[in-house]
Design a protein around this nucleic acid. Structure first.
Lengths: 222, 222
DNA sequence: CCTGTTTTTGTTGTATACAACAGTCTATTT
DNA sequence: AAATAGACTGTTGTATACAACAAAAACAGG
């Protein structure tokens, strides 16, 4: 499968992966030459990949200066959650009925299990696929593309902050369970409402985490 | 200003313009060589531009085969208006208060004038900037980027169909006036509701136009 | 020591040559 | 005449050389 990928696709996925995992940290400078050596391809596929990543907002290309990985600021949290708050309740309200009951049951079971039964990675990916599954019911490629971008940005925030702490796992599970329960009843208005509440709580928690993170960074500098 | 544009930006804007005006028609095949000669630049800026246009959904690049301008189907109308129906009422509801009263007055005056006083181009651009102004109050770059895409697609539909007919101009003006009146009262809920009604009507009209267009095409073939 | 200028270095922008591949057409064989 | 193999054509993918520019560094003059 990966063998049939063109070099520009390989370069795109490789660089994107490293940005999302923060191996290339926010505000870090990249340059084509270094990437070229790292990936063992010529500049052309690298440039294709960078141009695409710039479109997606993960990097900025500064002509004649270099490439910089997009920073993550408090303001970005607002932007990300504005999109999520707009899309995710909308998906439940209008397309919730497209979800298969078996899928809903799967999540009901998962969120009924004590969080201790999951490794941190498992729990993150469970959380992730839950929200993605809901949004993907929309099927509109324009909306899904936007969601994919902010999803990537959200992952970067997680790597930067949440990786460390197992903060709010119980609360998150409770809120997810409320959403799933509403879905089981096919009460999509309630599900959308619960989703909104969950996202608002999650947004505040992200704010807290980022601020706390900033503080510890400042302490390190002293 | 245009002098400082890089060649890849010039190529991007030039090709995009020609796609939107349907000089490069939907489903038409392009190729880098022809574009290269037409714009008098080398393949590199062309490729940059094409890659970006592909991201925006205006073209598809088929490896080793060619470049095809994205088609416009009935289904695309649904996709476009789904985004508009989600964003435009949202903008009024949450950010209407960001609009300056003088701007609202400007549109009030414009939509109070008989449509006969405008040329068709003037009226189209008035309609356009009205909706764009409303959506731009959102300020969220993720949402604005998505809107820009569907806006371009919408323009293509207009060129294909509406260019010919002055259909629904009075109705459109009436509906716009209702929206603007609600804005003047700072009743954003009402404004959002009127916008929703306007978009639904506009969507149906677009369907009609496209279907009518299809029929006349079929007649021509006979 | 400071300041203004020149040179150098590093970066992306652009042009172009070649490779790889898909599809078509032709010639050859049966 | 039909079928098949093979060359041919046209397309994008990839590599690389050179140009243009901006910023930093070195240097000379005061």
């Amino acid at each position: 499968m990966a063998a049939k990928e063109s070099l520009k696709q390989k370069a795109y996925h490789a660089i994107k992966e490293k940005i999302i995992t923060c191996e290339y940290a926010p505000d870090a400078m990249l340059n084509e030459e270094a990437l070229r050596e790292e990936l063992h391809v010529s500049r052309t596929p690298i440039r294709d990949a960078l141009s695409r990543l710039e479109q997606e907002g993960l990097i900025s290309i500064l002509p004649k200066k270099g490439v910089v990985v997009s920073g993550l600021s408090i303001h970005d949290i607002n932007l990300i959650f504005e999109v999520r708050l707009l899309y995710e309740p909308y998906a439940l309200l209008h397309y919730g009925s497209n979800m298969k009951d078996e899928v809903i049951y799967k999540y009901f079971d998962a969120f009924s299990t004590p969080v201790q039964n999951f490794s941190k990675d498992e729990y993150f990916s469970l959380d992730d696929t839950f929200h993605v599954n809901i949004v993907e019911t929309i099927q509109n490629p324009y909306l899904l593309k936007t969601y994919d971008w902010i999803h990537n940005q959200n992952l970067r925030f997680r790597v930067m902050t949440g990786q460390l702490v197992d903060y709010r796992l119980e609360k998150t599970t409770e809120e997810h369970l409320k959403i799933v329960t509403a879905c089981l009843k096919h009460d999509w208005e309630l599900a959308a409402k619960e989703m909104e509440a969950h996202l608002l709580a999650s947004k505040n928690a992200t704010f807290d985490l980022v601020l706390r993170n900033k503080n510890t960074e400042n302490q390190k500098e002293k």
